[in-house]
């Protein structure tokens, strides 16, 4: 048995268009997550990060289809399970997934407790209504959510409270891994902080063992996750510890991404922000070689052909033709 709580290798998933073309939004992704660790996934919109999150659940609804690869939870490949097994054994128990805008998907005519009853009816049918209430109230109390929320209708809650409630509901079965896709992007900073606090609480109290957090807000990832993974055009281009990814990125794309961070801190004013001209490649026809070459200021002829090797910089891994020293030299040269 591996110590990895989640292990993904060679995962490929694609969308089928009306014209029956296959568009690989997740194109050969490998990563593993240790128990107790948190992982952030960043990237521009359309880079495949949301599709990756969705794919990790093992459920595929058209137009999304499974291509190849494996998703192992504690060594068990969930792609080998049937749909029925996935639904009853994996979803909610092993992995919970909170899609983007989940908070607006709650049926407005039902009270919050109803959603919890629904989940527990399936997974723990032995509980009575009263026991369910007690369990839910206990859980809400430990997470600093008011108990009266259980009796409320979704529309009576503020955006931030709704999002926290959704997270509390989806983790009621203590899933090992929580996958949250942009859980804070529609919220004000104050509510955003409350949501982050809740996720930290879930981890501290061991209700969840690991977290996969998807967002385009890098400063947020820096504070929330241990590791950060950057995706570009369906591939992972760099992965490393949050500290290293924010302050010492190697891949030219990550470098630019980190250079575009805006925070209200001394020294930000008057600094030149990094910009990347152009747009990510159309995934229907991915260019050969490095997928970022077209927009990369350092791209050479060799970048546009062949397979791109994976280099290491300490514990960082990145997908680029060039060694760390060469890239760093270029960056230093550019700055002077």
């Amino acid at each position: 048995m591996s110590t990895h709580i989640l292990e993904v290798s060679g995962l490929k998933t694609y969308y089928k268009t009306r014209l029956k073309e296959k568009v690989f939004a997740v194109d050969g992704v490998d990563f593993e997550l240790e128990e107790g660790k948190t992982l952030g996934i960043a990237g521009e919109s359309g880079c495949g990060k949301s599709t990756l999150a969705l794919s990790l659940m093992g459920f595929y609804f058209p137009p999304l289809h499974y291509g190849s690869g494996s998703i192992r939870i504690h060594g068990n490949d969930i792609m080998k399970l049937s749909k029925e097994q996935l639904r009853s054994q994996v979803s909610g128990r092993e992995i919970a997934y909170i899609p983007q805008a989940a908070m607006n998907a709650l049926n407005p005519t039902l009270r919050i407790i109803h959603f919890i009853e629904d989940i527990l009816k399936e997974h723990r049918p032995e509980l009575s209504k009263k026991q369910v209430w007690e369990l839910a109230a206990e859980r809400f109390k430990t997470l600093n959510l008011p108990e009266k929320v259980l009796k409320s209708y979704p529309n009576e809650l503020s955006g931030g409270m709704k999002q926290r409630t959704v997270i509390a509901i989806s983790t009621i079965l203590n899933p090992k891994v929580l996958i949250a896709d942009e859980p804070t992007s529609a919220l004000d900073v104050t509510s955003q902080k409350a949501v982050i606090k809740l996720m930290k609480d879930l981890l501290d109290k061991k209700y969840i063992r690991s977290l996969v957090f998807i967002t385009h807000e890098l400063p947020l990832l820096y504070h929330v996750t241990d590791d950060i993974m950057v995706m570009y055009a369906g591939e992972i281009v760099e992965r490393g510890t949050a500290e290293q990814m924010i302050f010492d990125p190697v891949h030219p794309y990550t470098k630019k991404l980190m250079g575009s961070i805006l925070v209200p801190e001394e020294g930000m004013k008057g600094q030149k922000l990094a910009a990347i001209p152009g747009a990510p490649p159309n995934l229907k026809q991915v260019p050969p070689g490095c997928r970022f070459a077209e927009r990369c200021t350092y791209a050479q002829d060799e970048c546009r052909v062949g397979k791109v090797p994976i280099h290491k910089n300490g514990s960082n891994e990145y997908r680029c033709h060039f060694e760390t020293e060469i890239l760093k030299e270029w960056y230093a040269h550019e700055q002077s």
Partner: peptide, 9 residues
């Protein structure tokens, strides 16, 4: 407001 914003330094 300012303290609620995540920063990097």
């Amino acid at each position: 407001l300012i303290s609620d914003v995540p920063k990097i330094h």
